[in-house]
Design a binder for these strands. Sequence first.
DNA 1: ATAATTTAAATTGTGCACAACTTAATTGTT
DNA 2: AACAATTAAGTTGTGCACAATTTAAATTAT
Lengths: 148, 148
Amino acid sequence: MKRSLLLENQICFQLYTASKEMTRLYRPILEPLNLTYSQYLVMLVLWEEDGIDLRQLGSRLSLDSGTLSPLVKRLIQIGYIKKERVKEDERRVVLTLTDDGCALREQAEEVPRKVSGMLNVDEATYTAYMEMLTDIKSRLYAFGGRES
Amino acid sequence: MKRSLLLENQICFQLYTASKEMTRLYRPILEPLNLTYSQYLVMLVLWEEDGIDLRQLGSRLSLDSGTLSPLVKRLIQIGYIKKERVKEDERRVVLTLTDDGCALREQAEEVPRKVSGMLNVDEATYTAYMEMLTDIKSRLYAFGGRES
DNA sequence: ATAATTTAAATTGTGCACAACTTAATTGTT
DNA sequence: AACAATTAAGTTGTGCACAATTTAAATTAT
């Protein structure tokens, strides 16, 4: 049964559409912040850890420089972050929040509230979801795998 | 807790990375079939329902013509499908499998087997995952919503 | 029947996502 | 010290994903 070729039976397809629907839910919420979903993820990391370097950012988000370089360039243009070469190691680049980027955090605090309000899940269900996704990911990481 | 801005606590992020990891798992499996993940999804639908039109295909996959038009063009170039205007309604375009596309199905039958072998989930867990993803999606559809 | 509306695909433009490659700096080895 | 190997960003090229627009056909309303 689960091995059939029927589209709806593929867990990959359910994941794929769920993920797309999720970013669709975020789009109008993030639009007033002038952020795409991926840009929002980068900002989340920086609000947690200002002054992170690109390499670490990439490993947090599982994104490579091919994705992050242009994405970061856009965030710089918008004026939320700035980047600087590290003096001790000129290969590395460190990202820091601008005042605007820092200030944006307050508006962003509303985002998770809005989203979970829309999803309307109780704490227990939420935890179960997270555990399931973590479990799926750990099975996936077992192959060709990234870290944890 | 779940309302924090911490990256790892965002269900959206877990979904997003799980989905990316899933397509990463498929990539080497689909490569011998000369298909990308999205192209594979289109082929799944056609193996189910040969002669579907573009509009229905889009609704099955939740993809619009902006995504499907070029994607279908590539599948035609590869030689797996062909497209034809419908005589009774010249707006519509119908997709049909070529002999190669039809023959590919046999190889593709192995894909779900390989994937579930790699994921290594038992039937009950698999069902639980599917139910959870369906549930997440139904909550998501409640907003701005597409069909069920 | 003609005009207005709706519908289906295609096109254009932006922004990921990722593989493959390039460039430059650092580290390790001899 | 000199050279090889490694590492970090950036660049190039391909393929989605989606909003917005365009084109053309069909439907509906007048």
